[in-house]
Design a protein around this nucleic acid. Structure first.
Lengths: 379, 379
DNA sequence: CGGCCACTTGAAAATGTTTTCAGGCGGCTG
DNA sequence: CAGCCGCCTGAAAACATTTTCAAGTGGCCG
């Protein structure tokens, strides 16, 4: 690595105008202002760009059908014509117009993905799985956000259908299940975090009740009896299920349920922070917190930090999801792992299977307790 | 909120099979296995779905042209026909086929977005800005990932062009600038984190040199003299620029540059952790670290935590980017803020402007020092 | 009353493919 | 040698729109 680093450090250092902070600040002022020049943009055969199939056919001295056949391998073609066509394709730098193909074939080779938020690490991990699952299939993903809004989600689905997507993946979101089923009459849908099941709809969802149960149980096993819960949004089934699991674990351990130990978060850091403060201000003592998801746990963790409460020394904290970042919080977060990437991957496979009418397997993904460093035995 | 919470807590608690941990685990075994049923999927006029424009025309007793005109407001149509058509549209639940429209009009109403990674909070924030910038324009985003691989990025661009996207936004990535320029002969491109400028290409990039300078300068102003740097990937211009800024700040403060204080990270948490450990193991003392981005800082932070080194008491740490999560680390991270969301928004506006040949403004986004709690004056 | 114009409207061409249909051609069999 | 079959190929229709072109109608003016 020595020489590698050396090369790196060799980056040229001369940079006029960056000699002092002030000059830097000056240089950073809004230069670079630009407007589109009103000159006509060339959309004619400028570069080696757009050639059509019939142009290729003409150049090769064959009919369009033949070119199409060669492109798709639909039928045998004599090798001299094939050669000529291949040459013409290379010469003209031809690429088939996917739009025209889609129109004719009646399929757009596009999968619509609707997620409630583009900027949540949770959904991004799913997206990554979806992309991997779609890789090599020729399908591309049209991704839209519903902004946590059921009506907007429905509207986005309509938009996707107008664009003739061949299938839709709904990543969580709070559109009602029966509406998904209705949509699925038009286009195959697989949804994560939903319970819908129909001819043309599949659902992938983890057992959140069990997850909530297991998380709480972990805390109980460590000797905690006063366990708070920062819940998720009440209209999200996932959040409710986790709460149910929490209550059940308490019940099994003969710990009376205390309403004062549960607060209503929003699955985000800000809500987690707020809720942790509320909890603290209520004065009801507790030694552990089960946060409905990792982002909530991050927020709670900060609230504790601000008040000088140590995690896990003073309070144990467990999250849910196991976001990629949870490995790198200080200390690393104990949490219930959801195989989010795998879920995305499976969803992609399922929607592809639904479209092509091929068999596919859908297994319920398992949540798993990841014991790290934010929980410890009650001393 | 009392009653709201009450309602939340009222979630039904009866859950057969969830009574004990064991039974839960049992129940969680792979049930739910499904395969696509081989029954023919109905793609005929099953639901109230697919109706074509000519069907509408027939139903309304007019010609297709008239329907099209009404749909697009292209020409005046007598009000009785308009009424009839509108009724037919409603009756048949007609939606225009975007594919056919695209083919005819020669534009797909789609913007291609290529990002090096789908799961990085940095790019997601940009994505969110792009989506917001596109909102209401009728354009949708086709998002593909290049997986940090220049060839794959180029291939993805080709894929997008085959799909006739009307414009492309490249979010960072390490495809060479001149290749972007070449691509831009076929379709308008705006790129963030690149320097390309051409007739049909625009670039948006912050002044990373200044940012690196400012970050380092902040540490210097706090009295630090031994300042380490965890760099980014050497083939990324952004990373190099920040390193250059770092060196310059040192120079201005008459602090000799020490090669042993710079290590080569990868813009990710894992790399940051590794590098921090390397730095520590080298035995060269330092009191502050400038990490090339926030994710790197997260990793470094954890490495320090593991060794019992406190931040900021023992070591000051500054990042770059100001990811949404940086507000909620413990303690909140001091960092150079890039207006990532705004950059995405601006990119969307620019590509739209390029496409429609309308003027638009492109201002260089400013990076800004966000002083939070991971840096402090050297005692 | 004839001609001109404005306004609506429909027919048809066009977008770039795929696919069906049919025809030409060569070889083989009876 | 007639007939049949299989192979390769091109013409043309189809996909769902938009847009140009032309034509029809009615009113108005000279």
């Amino acid at each position: 690595m020595g020489s590698f680093l050396g090369a790196l450090l060799g980056v040229k250092t001369a940079l006029p105008g960056h000699a002092t902070l002030e000059s830097c600040a000056f240089k950073a002022k809004n230069v670079m202002k630009t407007t589109a020049k009103p000159t006509q943009r060339k959309r004619d055969p400028s570069g080696p760009s757009r050639a059509t199939l019939v142009e290729v056919a003409e150049a090769a001295g064959v009919s369009a059908s033949t070119v199409s056949r060669i492109l798709n391998g639909t039928a045998r073609v004599s090798s001299d014509k094939r050669k000529a066509v291949e040459k013409a394709i290379a010469d003209l730098n031809f690429t088939p117009n996917v739009l025209a193909q889609s129109l004719k074939r009646g399929q757009s080779m596009t999968i619509g993905v609707v997620t409630p938020a583009l900027d949540s690490p949770f959904f991004n991990e799913t997206l990554k799985g979806i992309e991997a699952g779609l890789a090599g299939s020729g399908y591309a993903a049209l991704i839209v956000s519903g902004h946590w809004n059921p009506e907007e989600e429905a509207e986005r689905v309509a938009l996707l259908m107008a664009r003739k997507v061949d299938g839709i993946i709904m990543v969580s979101g709070n559109i009602p299940d029966d509406q998904i089923v209705r949509f699925s009459e038009q286009v195959p849908i697989v949804a994560t975090g939903h319970g819908c099941e129909a001819d043309n709809a599949r659902a992938i969802r983890v057992d959140n009740v069990w997850g909530g149960y297991r998380a709480t149980r972990h805390l109980i096993e460590l000797g905690h009896r006063q366990i708070a819960h920062i819940a998720g949004m009440p209209n999200l089934q996932d959040a409710n299920d986790r709460l149910v699991g929490y209550k059940h674990a308490l019940e099994d351990a003969r710990i009376p349920f205390d309403e004062a130990l549960v607060v209503q978060g929003d699955f985000r850091e800000s809500g987690g922070m707020l809720c942790a403060n509320q909890l603290l201000d209520r004065g009801v003592p507790f030694s552990a917190v089960f946060a409905a998801n990792d982002q909530t746990a991050y927020g709670a963790r900060l609230a504790f930090y601000r008040r000088g409460i140590r995690v896990p020394e003073d309070i144990s904290l467990i999250g849910f999801d196991d976001l990629p970042g949870s490995l790198y919080t200080t200390p690393p977060l104990t949490t219930m792992r959801q195989p989010v990437y795998e879920i995305g991957h499976m969803a992609a496979g399922a929607v592809l299977g639904l479209i092509t009418n091929k068999p596919f397997k859908l297994e319920q993904p398992q949540v798993e307790l990841m014991i790290r460093e934010t929980t410890r035995r009650l001393r």
